[in-house]
Nucleic acid binder design. Structure first.
Lengths: 137, 137
DNA sequence: AATATGTATGCGAATTGTTCGCATTATATA
DNA sequence: TATATAATGCGAACAATTCGCATACATATT
């Protein structure tokens, strides 16, 4: 349980430390993979209404406490992040692993974009097959 | 209008060249930016039912005639592509420019992923502000 | 410790994007 | 031109997300 840690993070960010927020955030901190809204809802049970979970996750994301992640499933996921990384998602079983490639980061830091665009963020997700799904077929 | 071209592409790919498909595909070919399903629907009017447009776009995407693109808007877009490229999206006005960075491509071709993962595709989108929106504030 | 103020929450309905089942129609081919 | 197969229209059903509004609560103030 990451209740105390969650509370501290909220207070430090100037956000009201309500039970709903504490539960949502500590759930995300404890998670081993990016969680969908439904995942979070299942974990927090009736301690937070679904609409509140949506609002909370969005608020935590805009406070940069969580990252909103998109595995192109038609819904978003949220992840508590300290370091910046990307993901590789198995398209067969859904397994997720974290990916860090320094060359990649170096380039992403200064991608050349024409027309005077200034890039503030990027989304990169990798899709493929995990080791065991490759063997299966 | 890209009617004839659309028809040829469909036939070459072994897909039935129905009016709905020809209209949907020629709309995508003519587009200057990735289109949402609603965008396509607006262009083709009553020549194809919305459900048909969904089915058609999905079919064209799995035939690699179109690419399904995700700008994290809660919906997908589709683009007719010959060459592989990425996009930079202005988060203020929605302007989209195409991005090609050879270093990026080179690295994406062989990203090192642990655990025996094999990568079959990747999604990379850049977000920021276009030149004119930067000036506006 | 009591209270005032503004913000968060619960609730349920409404939106939006997408999918489905099924009867009908059209396509490609013999 | 008949025929088998696949695509389409239609409307209902789903799933994810957002909204409005009355109530409850967290924090700042006294």
């Amino acid at each position: 349980m990451q209740i105390i840690r969650a509370k501290k993070i909220l207070v430090n960010s100037g956000l009201e430390a309500t039970p709903a927020r504490i539960n949502v955030l500590s759930t995300c901190i404890s998670a081993t993979r990016p969680l969908s809204v439904a995942d979070v809802a299942a974990k927090v049970g009736s301690t937070a209404h679904l609409a509140t979970i949506y609002r909370t996750l969005e608020k935590l994301a805009s406070a940069n406490i969580l990252t909103r992640i998109d595995f192109q499933e038609g819904k978003f996921r949220y992840e508590y992040v300290s370091d910046h990384h990307h993901h590789a998602v198995c398209e067969s079983c859904g397994k997720v692993i974290e990916v860090q490639d320094k060359r990649l980061e170096a380039i992403m830091e200064n991608v050349k974009v024409g027309s005077g665009f200034s890039i503030t963020r990027h989304a990169l997700e990798l899709f493929g097959l995990c080791h065991s799904c490759q063997k299966k077929g």
